[in-house]
C-alpha cells in the first residue's frame, strides 16, 4: 500500500479499508447503471441536448413568431437570422417555438405509448393464458393497421368533434392521438421480454415469498426492463416527432400551435420551394433530421447495454483482423471471442 511515489496522505483521517471498499463498491454500482460513454452516446447526447436546450431557452429571446409586420420572404440576414416567411414571420422565431412544440408532442406521445405498451405487453407476457390471448390480439390488430392513415382518420375525427373548443387543434391532442396509435411495436418487444423474465427463478422466489402479482411486475420485473423501456421511449419520441411532422404536412396537425411540422406545412402551402425560399423549409427539416439521428444514436448506445455482445463486436472484429494480419491461426468463421 505504501507506495513512495504517492503524494503524502491527506490530513483527514484515512478511511478504514472496509469503508473504502464500500465506497468504491457504491460508486461502481452507480456506474454500472449508466451507459458507458461511447462515441455514439456522446454524439447523440450532444445533438439532442443542443436541440432540447434550443427548444427550451430560445423562445424566450426571439420575437413573436406570428408577427407579420416584417417584410415578406427576406433571405437570412443580420435582422432576421433565418429570414422571413411569405407572411413576414421571422423563421428563427418560428423555429424556436416549433422545436419546443415538436419536443412537447414527442415527449407526451412517447410517454403515452410507453404506458400503453407496458400495460399491454408486460401484463400479457406475465399473466399469459386468456388475458395474453386478448391483449396480444389487440396488439396485433394495432400492429397491422397502417399507422399514418389511422392517425389521419382519428386526428380528422377528433378535430371536428364538437365541444372540445381550443383543445381540438392543440398539440396535446395530436400527441395523444400519436401515443394511442404508436404503442403496438413496443408492446410486442415488452411481452417477449416479460415472458422470459417471468420464468426466472427470482420471480418464482418472490411468488414463494408471497408477493402479489402486480407487485412482482412493477417491483421485481420492471426495474430489470429499464434499459429496454428507455429504448422504447426514445423510439416512441422519434415516431411521434416524425408522425407529427407528417400529419402537419398533410394539414391535420396542431394548427393551433407552432411545431416543426406546421412550419413545413406553411412552407408548402406558401410555395416556398417554388419561390426558392430555402431558408423557410430547410431549418425545420434539418432539426427534425438531427433530432431523429441524435435520438437513434442514444438508442444504439442503450442497445449495447442491453446486449453486451454488440459492445464487444467491434473490438472482437478488430482483434480478429489483427490476428489474421499477424498470421496467427484464428478461426475464420467470424465467431466472437
Amino acid at each position: 500500500m505504501a507506495d513512495p511515489r504517492l503524494p503524502a496522505p491527506p490530513a483527514e483521517p484515512l478511511p478504514t479499508s472496509a469503508v473504502a471498499t464500500e465506497r468504491i463498491a457504491r460508486a461502481s454500482r452507480v456506474r454500472t447503471l449508466l451507459p458507458s460513454m461511447s462515441g455514439k452516446l456522446l454524439t447523440g447526447l450532444v445533438i439532442v441536448g443542443v436541440i432540447v436546450l434550443f427548444g427550451l431557452v430560445a423562445p424566450a429571446f426571439v420575437q413573436d413568431p406570428r408577427d407579420s409586420g416584417n417584410p415578406a420572404l427576406l433571405p437570412p440576414g443580420p435582422d432576421h437570422l433565418l429570414g422571413t416567411t411569405k407572411l413576414g414571420y421571422d423563421v428563427f422565431a418560428q423555429l424556436a417555438w416549433g422545436t419546443q412544440g415538436s419536443l412537447f408532442v414527442g415527449l407526451v406521445a412517447g410517454v403515452v405509448s410507453l404506458l400503453l405498451a407496458v400495460v399491454f405487453g408486460v401484463l400479457a407476457g406475465y399473466f399469459g393464458g386468456v388475458l395474453d390471448e386478448i391483449l396480444t390480439l389487440l396488439t396485433n390488430i394495432m400492429l397491422v393497421i397502417p399507422g399514418l392513415p389511422l392517425v389521419m382518420v382519428i386526428a380528422a375525427y377528433v378535430q371536428h368533434t364538437e365541444g372540445l373548443g381550443p383543445l381540438a387543434r392543440s398539440s396535446f391532442l395530436v400527441a395523444l392521438v400519436l401515443g394511442i396509435t404508436g404503442w403496438a411495436g413496443s408492446a410486442v418487444v415488452l411481452r417477449a421480454t416479460a415472458r422470459s423474465l417471468r420464468t426466472r427463478d427470482y420471480v418464482a422466489a418472490s411468488r414463494v415469498a408471497g408477493e402479489r402479482p402486480l407487485r412482482i411486475i412493477f417491483v421485481e420485473i420492471l426495474p430489470n426492463l429499464v434499459p429496454l423501456l428507455a429504448a422504447q421511449l426514445i423510439f416512441g419520441v422519434i415516431f411521434a416527432v416524425l408522425g407529427e411532422a407528417g400529419l402537419s404536412y398533410l394539414g391535420l396537425g396542431p394548427t393551433g400551435s407552432i411545431t416543426l411540422g406546421t412550419m413545413l406545412n406553411d412552407a408548402q402551402t406558401g410555395q416556398a420551394v417554388g419561390s426558392g425560399a430555402w431558408w423557410w423549409f430547410v431549418p425545420p427539416g434539418a432539426v427534425i433530421a438531427l433530432l431523429g439521428a441524435g435520438l437513434s444514436l442514444i438508442n444504439f448506445a442503450i442497445d449495447e447495454i442491453v446486449n453486451p455482445k454488440l459492445r464487444l463486436a467491434p473490438q472482437a472484429a478488430r482483434r480478429q483482423r489483427k490476428a489474421r494480419r499477424a498470421g496467427r491461426g484464428i478461426a475464420d468463421d467470424g465467431a466472437f471471442a
Binding site: R200, D201, Y202, A204, G210, N224
Partner: peptide, 22 residues
Amino acid sequence: ERYRSRVQLVFQDPFASLNPFH
C-alpha cells in the same frame, strides 16, 4: 399466504434466484 409462512423453498441456483436489481 399462511401456508407459505410455514413452508419455504430454497432454489437450486443462487445466481438466478436473487433479483439482480435489488
